[in-house]
Design a protein around this nucleic acid. Structure first.
Length: 151
DNA sequence: GCCAACGTTGGC
DNA sequence: GCCAACGTTGGC
């Protein structure tokens, strides 16, 4: 089982929105090739995702979700009516991928970015080093550190 | 294939 | 709203 960090802007789709849906939700709108490759090649059903709120007042990790599918082609990319339509994408060669996620838990208090930055064992996280990747891997060591020291 | 210009992300 | 970091586009 692998661990991931998924960024979302709470003004658009927050962990509370995810929690409202008792079953499963499509995680769409990823239009970045690095993130696309991760979804297409590495995401597996049963993986765990840390949900991160970005571009808002309180940025940080807010809870957990379960990945409930492997990566599969984003259905909206073929729909001219959709905001996610991509004319260069075909069914034979889909350009964009999505996965399904389901709410697991919301932390009582969010883990602020500041706390993640000041934790030495997390120095190598893409979140800290690169900053601009909306789907990123989290090692088991990082996950365990976060869950046992920062929640 | 290089690289400048431009657009987007995202913290502050 | 500012700005740094990074990705994408397009001329050559």
């Amino acid at each position: 089982m692998a661990y991931w960090l998924l960024k979302t802007e709470p003004d658009t789709f927050s962990i509370d929105d995810l929690a409202k849906n008792s079953t499963t939700e499509i995680w769409d709108g990823i239009r970045n090739y690095q993130a696309r490759n991760i979804i297409r090649d590495q995401i597996s059903k049963g993986d765990i995702a840390l949900i991160y709120h970005s571009s808002c007042k309180d940025v940080g990790i807010v809870g957990l979700a379960k990945i409930t599918s492997a990566g599969y082609p984003c259905p909206h990319q073929f729909d001219p009516e959709s905001d996610y339509f991509d004319p260069k994408s075909t069914v034979d060669a889909p350009r964009w991928f999505v996965m399904d996620v389901a709410f697991l838990s919301k932390f009582d208090t969010l883990i602020p970015l500041k706390a993640l930055k000041s934790a030495k064992p997390l120095n190598e996280m893409a979140l800290i080093r690169q900053g601009r990747l909306s789907v990123q891997p989290v090692t088991e060591i990082e996950y365990d550190f976060i869950m046992s020291n920062l929640t």
